[in-house]
Design a protein around this nucleic acid. Structure first.
Lengths: 211, 211
DNA sequence: CTAACGTTTGTCCAATCGGTCAAAAATTTG
DNA sequence: CAAATTTTTGACCGATTGGACAAACGTTAG
């Protein structure tokens, strides 16, 4: 008789299969949205039958929930790293770079998150108003300190963070549009380096010509 | 006798009911996505029965298509207005302002568009690679002219346009997150003015402190 | 071996989906 | 008025959906 524990005890096969399902679900959910995705699609992408998938996750929503929980931590990691020590301008620049790298390397995660927010964040609203807000407020205070010390120009730290999120995630969420507009020549792999160069200049000096 | 139009001749009732349906569909599609929305939802929001709705639009996709066609024109209008005459910096500033106003006044349109792009733009890909790319290329040339004339700093015009789209539309597409992070105090109606102030400064001067 | 347990599958179900259709109701036309 | 046309509705259909379930299969410990 196996003793029951509070946290679910899992066999090796369960661990592996659950990972397989989550990987497949990330692919499917991020391109079709939650309601636009079917269990069959996920099961096929994971290489198993639907009832078999439902053996590991009893409901479609459970998969999505597990995915979102993991996602948030990964997603906020770069902001957590924003540190008070070190040169402010350098800190911000590397935050932007890290976020852009995430857009390049984890576009599915970005789209999954965007999908959730777009539809009103029904499943993660508490996290936004709780954990996320706390973190952003904390980092906004750090940035405010830099402004008071004259290390960076005075602006609204919250909107500064928003603008970094927006500009970097754009290259994941709107990738199709970016590539379509840049065309076959400039829409290749180099687009992220071009974006990095542009964003660095934008956030550093803006557009006003130096005379 | 009412004046005839070139293609589909429509009665007064048809015109009105089609408008009613499109308005309802905009609401439903923009919050649930295409596959996440049902004809019944749209019909209910429009105050009519499903078969009655299908009398005006034979397929669910027809509604979405009509919506997207209209949307794109409205959506690109601000960029079309970006004009070669007038002070470059002023032109860019008012483009940003207009885009931000659209995010404030037409968030549903923005979300509908974002939903479509997020899912790979299956229905408007030709428009992106055609009409949109042409327009952006054209405006990018204008901006390049400004750069050559030393009116604004030299950067990548395409990524500049992307960054304007990203930062402004963020306030429509990610509105839930923005309000959650700003909290009850700063997340009210003033958030768009704060955003306008911040974006103006960002695009003008960047973050480097003026010494 | 066998018993126990973990895993997989085929079958099935109720609900919902997009869409059809004929007939009723309302409106317009002569 | 009545006839013709447009609009609305209830009933219905096949396909797909999320999910249940028991039986079969595989694996391992004694």
């Amino acid at each position: 008789m196996t003793t029951s524990t509070q946290a679910p005890r899992r066999t090796r096969i369960q661990q592996e299969k659950r990972e397989l399902i989550l990987e497949a679900a990330l692919e499917v959910f991020s391109t079709n949205g939650f309601r636009g995705s079917t269990i069959d699609q996920i099961a096929e992408a994971a290489g198993m039958s639907k009832p078999n998938l439902l053996y590991y996750f009893r409901r479609k929503e459970d998969i999505h929930e597990t995915l979102m929980e993991r996602l948030l931590e990964t997603w906020l990691a770069p902001l957590r790293e924003l540190d008070d020590i070190g040169d402010p301008m350098t800190e911000l620049r590397s935050y932007i770079r890290r976020k852009l790298e995430m857009a390049r390397d984890f576009p599915r995660e970005s789209r999954l998150f965007a999908n959730e927010i777009l539809q009103g964040a029904p499943r993660i609203m508490p996290l936004l108003a709780g954990e996320l807000k706390t973190l952003v407020d904390e980092k906004a205070a750090v940035i405010k300190g830099w402004m008071r010390a004259g290390k960076i120009a005075r602006t609204d730290p919250w909107h500064l963070i928003f603008s970094i999120w927006a500009t970097t995630q754009h290259y994941a969420d709107f990738d199709v549009q970016v590539r379509a507009v840049l065309g076959p020549n400039r829409g290749g792999d180099g687009r992220f380096e071009d974006a990095a160069r542009f964003l660095e200049q934008l956030f550093l000096d803006g557009l006003k010509p130096k005379n």
